[in-house]
């Protein structure tokens, strides 16, 4: 029997919110390390993956690796029935994962709700972007990132991100004009998360679709900071580390190539 108990359902809810705009159904791979989901969005432009580490569960029992075919919308519907501070337990039969039992318990232990969700059999190849040594990274506040993406998308549909010695710049062009937002390295003493950290081996410049970046930015709810990692002519990696070392949500997006349709 696979069993995993999270102290607060809110984390799981937020994770689902960060992937449900991109993925309709996906396999959740559960093993000794934790739960991992890795999937292309349905238009196969981007790749999204999340990981919840085994250590972050109150109870985590996984005798053998199991792949659970989850319909994201359906699970989200079930999770709506839980209060944010309810604990949540996921259970499935490892040998024949046809259904998943979902159990909510309130803080005071006075309310227990039990749901059963039908699982799907999803025949899909597992894809991953090979980890590479990114030549440049920017770490910044996730709220700031969300704001920049929102602001730029009022002007255009793609953003050019450039990292060089001067800092990180985000620029866009549209029918009504153009815009550019530039961030410089800074350290905020009292609020470390508001600072901007830039590491750069080589300068890099690539253009990405704002539509997707805006969807990714919604994951700001999971984490105070975001790390953008880039290399020339390589997909950008956008990582939101879930607080308290619970895990992460990562997005990969291929750069737009001049003159090619997205």
């Amino acid at each position: 029997m696979f069993e995993a108990r999270l102290e607060e359902s809110a984390v799981l809810k937020k994770i689902l919110d960060s992937v449900r705009d991109l993925v309709q159904e996906a396999n959740w791979d559960c093993n000794d390390d934790g739960i991992v989901m890795q999937s292309m969005d349905s238009s196969h432009i981007s790749l999204v993956c999340f990981m919840v580490r085994a250590s972050s569960f109150e109870v985590y029992q996984c005798e053998r690796n199991v792949s659970l075919g989850v319909k994201i919308d359906s699970l989200a519907k079930v999770l709506k029935c839980a209060a944010s501070d309810d604990s949540v337990t996921l259970k499935a039969d490892e040998n024949e994962p046809n259904t998943m039992d979902i159990l909510f318990e309130s803080k005071k232990n006075d309310r227990i709700s039990d749901f059963q969700l039908k699982l799907m059999v999803i025949d899909q190849e597992m894809l991953g972007i090979p980890e590479s040594d990114y030549t440049s990274t920017v770490e910044m506040s996730s709220a700031e990132f969300r704001r920049i993406m929102g602001d730029l998308s009022t002007m255009g549909d793609s953003v050019t991100i450039e990292i060089n010695k001067g800092g990180a710049s985000f620029s866009t062009k549209g029918d009504i004009g153009s815009g550019n937002i530039c961030l410089q390295k800074s350290a905020s003493v009292d609020k470390p998360k508001d600072g901007v950290k830039i590491t750069m081996v080589e300068p890099v410049k690539s253009t990405f679709s704002l539509k997707f970046l805006n969807i990714f930015a919604k994951a700001a709810a999971l984490s105070d900071t975001v790390v953008l990692s880039m290399s020339e002519e390589y997909p950008i990696r956008i990582e939101f580390a879930i607080d308290k070392d619970v895990g992460y949500v990562r997005y990969y997006l291929a750069p737009k190539i001049e003159g090619q349709e997205s």
Binding site: E25, M40, G69, K118, M120, I122, D123, Q124, G128, P130
Partner: peptide, 17 residues
């Protein structure tokens, strides 16, 4: 409940392994 999704050869898949 049983679905199958193919992997395309364009888009992000070009970079994926």
């Amino acid at each position: 409940q049983k679905v199958s999704v193919v992997t395309p050869t364009n888009g992000i898949a070009k970079f994926a392994k």
